[in-house]
């Protein structure tokens, strides 16, 4: 029998594994990882964005042999990493404005190209800086197919300014500008945009979604993206304990549940076509994902108006994702 047996104890879902060949371990398992984002930053406890950024940039640093420049949009990630006189970055890093990270990165890439350097360029920002204010520049970078990997750390609202709604905020979620009051509490159903699919519509070489819950998946996608040239986009779900009203130790669990519920489908696309999806391992109802988050607390109050309907609609969204991306593994489908 020549089939490879996944180790039970130390399966490929853990960060590292003393039993695995070192090339099969994650970048994060290595003592030599770049720590592109190092200690002393001022992110809240359990910050998903801090984690996602280190995961992604360290993986990119390995892929680029550390020949990398990062451009950062204004937002939490920028504020908590670079308050004068200290920076947490250990990578060449530039912050310009909230809405122009993609364009600035295009400029850096152009400079590298014209100077004949192999230096790779990443632009990164939160969902507000990506799906809203930075969308024009992002779309421009996409359509020009500039040699930039754009990474969106999506925590589903403007967290830096105090949790206001963005176009990435999910329906029913409470934010400071979509309060959980009135007949239809929280964010309005039928609004928002799906940036990974919009990115795909640009026909760019690579689009992927990832979460901080599945590091192997995330690193594989960053590595794949870094192996390509032209405009690439990775959308990483990064729970925000503060904005979501969740425990700081639940950041990874919530990412996992977002995937396992079907609300956050994991997929890859090349030139506008979906090329791979990550199947759901243990499917859960959306309520299991929503319940630990205070931003959805109004959906679980027995007397709340329209709560059940909202839950049903969110479940329907998850089901639609599962159908669209064919997310059920063979074994989950028969359960």
């Amino acid at each position: 029998m020549t089939q490879t047996v996944k180790f039970y104890q130390t399966g490929t879902l853990t960060v590292g594994n003393r039993l695995l060949d070192s090339d099969k371990r994650t970048v994060q398992a290595s003592r030599n990882r770049s720590n592109a984002l190092t200690c002393g930053h001022r992110a809240c406890q359990g910050c998903g964005e801090a984690l996602g950024a280190r995961y992604a940039i360290d993986a990119a640093m390995r892929a680029a042999n550390r020949d990398l420049v990062c451009v950062n949009a204004t937002g939490c990630l920028e504020v908590f990493t670079t308050p004068y006189p200290e920076t947490s970055w250990q990578v060449a890093w530039l912050h310009s404005l909230f809405g122009n990270a993609a364009a600035v990165a295009s400029g850096v890439a152009a400079a590298m190209r014209v100077k004949g350097k192999a230096t790779r360029v990443i632009a990164q920002g939160g969902d507000g800086g990506t799906t809203d204010i930075g969308f024009g520049c992002l779309s421009g970078m996409f359509e020009r197919n500039d040699d930039v990997l754009y990474i969106c750390y999506d925590n589903e609202a403007y967290m830096n300014t105090g949790v206001q709604r963005s176009s990435a905020t999910p329906p029913a979620a409470r934010t400071a500008t979509t309060p959980a009051v009135g007949a239809a509490p929280g964010n309005v159903f039928g609004t928002g945009k799906n940036l990974p699919r919009i990115a795909m519509a640009h026909g760019i070489p690579y689009v992927a979604t990832a979460t901080v819950a599945d590091l192997h998946d995330l690193e594989a996608k960053v590595t794949r993206a870094m192996g390509l040239h032209g405009a690439r986009y990775i959308h990483i779900l990064v729970p925000c304990p503060l904005g979501w009203g969740a425990a700081s130790h639940d950041t990874i669990r919530l990412s996992r549940l977002a995937v396992e519920s079907g609300l956050f489908p994991l997929f890859e696309a090349e030139h506008g076509e979906v090329t791979a999806t990550t199947p759901i391992r243990r499917r859960v109802p959306v309520a299991e994902y929503l319940k630990p988050q205070k931003r959805f607390a109004h959906l679980f109050r027995p007397d709340a108006p329209g709560a059940q309907e909202a839950l049903d609609r969110l479940q329907a969204m998850a089901d639609a994702n599962i159908r669209r991306f064919n997310l059920l593994s063979a074994e989950e489908a028969v359960r």
Partner: peptide
């Protein structure tokens, strides 16, 4: 058992 999870998942590299 040295799976490196703690080392990996710490947002503060601590």
């Amino acid at each position: 058992f040295e799976c490196d999870n703690c080392f990996g998942v710490c947002p503060d590299n601590a």
